[in-house]
């Protein structure tokens, strides 16, 4: 049905060029058309505005703890006593179940020393994602009357995971230390998380 005109200049004919050019243009057009369909599923502007929060730490006395909500997750903030800091620092790394510091945004393989899990000069402040790394329950230990477990940190009532005063897993089924979210001090007692 179609007449063929052989118009080969070298190895690529005019017809080949048209086919390839049309195909490339169509592919670009299809990608441009599909992209909004995919992008609309991404968090929208109002969700993204929740990406960072600011917390004022001044009301939190030594020995006290608060929980704030960041990106839908509970964040444990504890103003640790000198004893709690000392216990955390003096634990040898070999005793830890998870040797990784679990700092979000930092390269993996960072050793789980207390220094790595706090900010320099602000070691009394422990700020971490309060979700048990086993199956996702929220461990006890924030309120004064809570069970803190044998390591003085947190205790997960679901399956018995026990965390120390630096939020590191010591005993129980949880595989990893509780994560440290990305945060920075914007003032002496103010932080911005995320």
């Amino acid at each position: 049905m179609a007449t063929t005109i052989d118009d080969k200049r070298g190895d690529v004919s005019r017809r080949d060029f048209i086919y390839i050019a049309t195909g490339a243009f169509a592919a670009l057009g299809a990608a441009a058309a599909i992209w909004p369909l995919i992008d609309q599923l991404n968090p929208d502007a109002s969700a993204l505005s929740q990406a960072s929060i600011e917390v004022d730490l001044a009301p939190v006395q030594t020995g006290q703890a608060i929980t704030v909500l960041w990106r839908g997750k509970p964040i444990f903030i504890r103003n640790r006593t000198a004893e709690e800091i000392e216990k955390a620092k003096s634990t040898p790394l070999s005793e830890l179940k998870d040797p990784d510091a679990q700092v979000l945004g930092a390269p993996s393989g960072l050793p789980a020393t207390d220094e790595n899990r706090t900010k320099p000069g602000k070691e009394n402040w422990l700020i971490m994602v309060g979700i048990c790394t086993h199956l996702g329950c929220i461990p006890k230990g924030q309120s004064p009357g809570d069970e803190k477990g044998p390591y003085g940190g947190w205790f997960c009532p679901c399956h018995g995971s026990m965390y120390d005063t630096s939020g590191r897993i010591r005993q129980g089924p949880a595989p990893r230390n509780m994560e440290i979210p990305p945060y920075a001090f914007t003032g002496d007692t103010k932080i911005k998380i995320g």
Binding site: Q40, D44, A45, A47
Partner: peptide, 9 residues
């Protein structure tokens, strides 16, 4: 206003 390409959809 908020969603990516929401106006387009």
């Amino acid at each position: 206003r908020d969603s990516s390409y929401g106006w387009l959809m």
